[in-house]
Design a protein around this nucleic acid. Structure first.
Lengths: 347, 347
DNA sequence: TTGAAAGCGCTAACAA
DNA sequence: TTGTTAGCGCTTTCAA
């Protein structure tokens, strides 16, 4: 049963050693080796020690495919990986993916990436699910009004969403999200504490629930401080020049001394308008963005920005996923995490 | 043998249908179903049609684990995913990963991400390799003088490197890289064509082979145009303020009219110095960066930047990987791709 | 505490 | 062209 050659020096053998090889060499049954790996408590200490040593000698590692077949699991988490939009400052995905990879590793999972196709948003999910290639999914694009979450729910596929089900009040799935309103409230209060009273808002169009949520943080903080928001808000596309135009209009019409923006992209637009008008960011006019993107960090006048706790998001997601997969009751439908404020020279 | 319940409506059954289920329902043997999936040419057209229809009816998809176990493959490509460095403008990884995911999908592979640990750079590779969890690796961090490539070569693990083996002239592995010198040459010539004669270089420290390679593109293009490089070069850390300082010194001492930088991060530093000195980028002084990061795209004065053809890199890597995995002879050790120049207002 | 038997779902090899 | 047999390496019974 055993292969004649195993690790010769440090070189991997043609076929890696199997459980049977370890068992034979250690003079125990295959099952005992399996237990040594998965239920070490069942072995007598000396047997365990002997088996472990043999495992080390042979460089044995359980064959993934065999284990997967037998246990009907894969230890893989599927994540649809959409590229960062060119021309915007959104680098959140990159940071999130890394956090997810780290958090998953901690509990023995790996992350499997698959491409997205806007024409067929569930195709990739369906394939992986039906071929039992992944144990669960992390869904990051709930906010687009995409059907993934509903579809996965219907399939009873285990998944956790990063993002609230804005469109669907009846959604029963589990999600983790960052409280954008709280982040903007933090930013607004920060500006007010710095002495600003005319704090303007530049956000997204009204049909963006995330944008409206963030906006509400500005409104509520302004009002809580007895400040008016009249004439200080603008809703535009999430591109730099729209932010620049909005800032120009607001400066002309309402003379704000500070801007809170729904994104770093829009904040860059504001900074551009300030530059054209020879206004110094942070001195003449304060600016705050959202996402703490590389742009915010690298821009010569550092851009103050709301930072999502993506590491924590990933940890919560993985935690919830494990509960889901072990059929433990999941206590809460949704988890909302608080962002922080990365304060730089622009405020 | 068959399960009683399969797809009831659109809901996934408790256990998905197997090959045996399809075979029974279609009235053929299991092997015939397997052939219908993997070698359709072997079947008579009518049999094939019947089996295919049954597959569709049942929503059958081959169980990954079983196939993997039998074929000793996983259809998975391992990629160590390191996060983008905070405070730098390098967004290349994100774009590359997406390209790799797309290119892999095309040929039936998925990308498995695993975390990196600088303390133990080969640990992750070793685990995945020994447990036969992936078919091959894509190695992206050859430039750090890391031992991965050498180690993987020694293990005879199939892998392709993104990046040349700068440190190790004797390396025998296959790689794909972007010709940084050509990119910088392109940028330099672009500036010269615009009428600049005093084009300065701000690059990395001398111990960075990538930096020195890029620098050589500047040197050779300047000389090819009969221009002097004396006093026009600077080597610094890859952080914004270093770029800003270098630009200030160069402006004072050598009065360049244009800057070519080894990174967008350094270019941002140059832009900062220009801003402080009230010099207009693109009008008074031209600036070119490297990587076409989000920063370059979003910066209000668009930053001209060398853009790596990461989509092509991914395609070449996957192509090479397939050849490697099918034991076809790989014609070339290394493939060098040409970058392009994304021209914006800063030049 | 250890061992034996069975089988997860698939495909390679061979036979009909 | 289709069917039969065997077995990939592991873990889950169950028995000793």
């Amino acid at each position: 049963m055993a292969r004649s050659e195993h690790r010769s020096g440090a070189t991997l053998p043609v076929t890696p050693p199997t459980l049977a090889d370890v068992a034979e060499r250690a003079g125990v049954s295959r099952q005992t080796v399996s237990n040594a790996v998965n239920n070490p408590d069942l072995l007598r200490p000396d047997t365990l020690e002997r088996v472990r040593q043999t495992i080390a000698e042979l460089g044995y590692s359980p064959n993934r495919a065999a284990r997967n077949l037998r246990t009907r699991t894969s230890s893989l988490i599927g994540l649809r990986f959409a590229p960062a939009q060119e021309g915007t400052a959104n680098a959140a995905m990159d940071r999130f993916v890394h956090s997810l990879v780290e958090a998953s590793e901690e509990v023995g999972y790996h992350v499997l990436l698959f491409p997205g196709d806007d024409e067929d948003p569930i195709g990739g999910y369906d394939n992986l699910l039906r071929s039992t290639a992944v144990d669960a999914f992390v869904v990051t694009d709930t906010y687009l009004g995409n059907p993934q979450a509903a579809w996965l729910s219907q399939q009873r596929a285990p998944f956790v969403a990063f993002g609230r089900p804005w469109d669907d009040a009846g959604a029963r799935h589990v999600w983790v999200d960052v409280d954008g309103a709280a982040g903007i409230a933090l930013a607004t209060q920060h500006l007010i504490d710095r002495g600003h009273t005319r704090v303007a808002w530049i956000g997204w169009r009204k049909d963006s629930p995330i944008g409206e949520d963030r906006r509400s943080g500005w409104v509520r903080t302004m009002h809580a401080n007895g400040l008016s928001t009249t004439g200080l808000a603008s809703r535009v596309e999430d591109v730099v020049h729209s932010g620049a135009e909005a800032a120009a209009v607001l400066l002309d019409e309402s003379a704000p001394t500070a801007f809170v923006c729904a994104s770093d992209t829009l904040a860059m637009g504001v900074l551009h308008t300030l530059w054209i008008r020879q206004l110094a960011p942070g001195q003449d006019i304060a600016v705050v963005g959202f996402d703490d993107s590389q742009v915010a960090q690298v821009y010569p006048v550092g851009l103050t920005s709301v930072r999502q706790p993506l590491e924590d998001v990933a940890v919560e997601i993985v935690r919830t996923l494990r509960a889901l997969l072990s059929h433990q009751p999941v206590e809460t439908r949704g988890i909302l995490l608080e962002p922080t404020l990365a304060i730089r020279e622009s405020s």
